[in-house]
């Protein structure tokens, strides 16, 4: 068991590091109360993703991945900018979520990670790349973002969860299989962007209606 890591090439090590950082950031997002910090964490996650894509691109010599990295960097710059603006416009800077019992959420998160790894195990046996073990982490990131969406009450944090989920998917694509076809990637990105804008419009409407972005108010729409 001692030291097998040193024999792995540097690029793979870097990708492993990126994977770990992604996971760390996912957990940080799960535990973060303040919206502004949440957006920053999301931006950091995007940056990590860009970094790992660049490493993959450089080490495998697949030049289209550079393009992919460039496209991904939209999420590091543009989306956080939009979100920050939204937060300012809706004056939510000082809003905090009332989270129930962060440790419990984290514990569930741990279970999710184990589950994701167990699930990814047979899949990653099939993959041939050195970094295939990151597939489990990517899947965990997706599931953790999902968990985050479940535990949040505010609409904005749910959108961030949604976007983070997409980060996880991209990471799975680049690290485990060295990228998916460009068309698919662009398509997903476009979807996300459109989604984000539609959400933005929705926010204004929700707030006009209920004077707040608490999603619990939506429950009053139910007929009974």
């Amino acid at each position: 068991m001692p030291d097998a890591t040193a024999s792995v090439p540097l690029s793979a090590q870097l990708i492993h590091l990126a994977a770990a950082v992604m996971l760390l950031l996912s957990f940080a997002m799960l535990a973060q109360r303040r919206l502004v910090s949440l957006v920053n964490l999301f931006a950091a996650q995007g940056a990590t993703l860009v970094g790992s894509t660049l490493v993959v691109a450089y080490s495998t010599g697949q030049h289209e991945l550079y393009l992919s990295a460039a496209v991904t960097s939209i999420k590091v710059v543009l989306l956080p900018y939009v979100l920050h603006r939204l937060i300012r416009r809706l004056s939510l800077q000082w809003d905090t979520e009332t989270l129930v019992n962060i440790p419990t959420t984290m514990l569930i998160g741990l279970g999710v990670v184990i589950f994701a790894f167990g699930l990814a195990q047979p899949l990653s046996e099939l993959a041939s790349t050195v970094t295939r073990s990151t597939l489990g982490i990517a899947m965990a990131v997706v599931l953790l973002s999902f968990l985050m969406m479940i535990t949040r009450r505010k609409a904005i944090s749910q959108v961030i969860g949604f976007l983070a989920m997409e980060n996880g998917l991209f990471f799975a694509a680049t690290s485990a299989t060295y990228g998916m076809p460009m068309v698919v990637e662009l398509g997903i990105l476009l979807d996300v962007l459109v989604g984000a804008f539609i959400f933005g419009i929705f926010f204004f409407h929700i707030r006009e209606q209920f004077e707040s972005l608490e999603l619990s108010h939506l429950e009053s729409l139910k007929e009974d």
């Binding site: 984290m106 741990l110 790894f117 982490i137």
Partner: peptide, 24 residues
């Protein structure tokens, strides 16, 4: 404080998990 420490605990366990799963 318990929250802060529970985070530390979770992170440490996560480190152990990452060690096992990534082998690094």
């Amino acid at each position: 404080a318990p929250e802060f420490l529970a985070m530390a605990f979770m992170l440490a366990v996560l480190g152990l998990l990452v060690r096992l799963l990534l082998g690094s």
